[in-house]
Design a protein around this nucleic acid. Sequence first.
DNA 1: CCTTTGTATCGTAATATTGCAATGAATAAT
DNA 2: ATTATTCATTGCAATATTACGATACAAAGG
Lengths: 110, 110
Amino acid sequence: MGVTQTHLFTAEQNELAQMAKAIAHPARIAILQHLVKTRSCINGDLVMEIGLAQATISQHLRELKDAGLIQGSIEGTRVNYCINPEKWTLLKALFQDFFESYDTCCGSNC
Amino acid sequence: MGVTQTHLFTAEQNELAQMAKAIAHPARIAILQHLVKTRSCINGDLVMEIGLAQATISQHLRELKDAGLIQGSIEGTRVNYCINPEKWTLLKALFQDFFESYDTCCGSNC
DNA sequence: CCTTTGTATCGTAATATTGCAATGAATAAT
DNA sequence: ATTATTCATTGCAATATTACGATACAAAGG
């Protein structure tokens, strides 16, 4: 118990859930929004921007990287992070398809 | 420690994160998709549809209800669940805005 | 009234997440 | 060479999530 039973679900359902989980933290959303805004692939001044400890930010960055949403490139002692455009486009479509599968025109049924 | 520090973030960031968390489980996605498909507000034959225990499904339903994504109406001993169209539309817009904030036309910066 | 049916809730176990101090590793600056 | 800067990793504590058996509860049917 305590572990998600992924074998019960389709690959699409698991994928969407996993991507949602990657976004399911305000710090990770803040990081993504900062990367979107600056575009210039800012690194650990996310620690300044957001009020969390350096280790915590680093951990969130790793989760976003593991999810494929961002990528980092080493530049001296710094690491520049930026959004992965391909994955972003893919995610956008994934969520769009999910939300558009329901037609809201006729209201609730209960 | 172990608790998300929501005070560091904006209401929008927390809202988006919370909604993402509501979707961040394949069982909850499967439930939503089933409600989308059947429209007819099926209840605990979600237990049959999905392979999880009744208590587990009930718990996921409560989370979706707490998030405002679904609503249930009692009908005898049964409870008919269906999607909350207003919230659904709201969520759709929330995610859409988030994903569209990034312009992928120029590729990655690192 | 008693039984059946459909759900919700409680209690509990296993696992995952969140956060940070401390430490390590690698480059840059002096 | 030594020190400073930047980031990742480790180890740990607190809390949250996931799953299910057992139980409780309410409405229907006998």
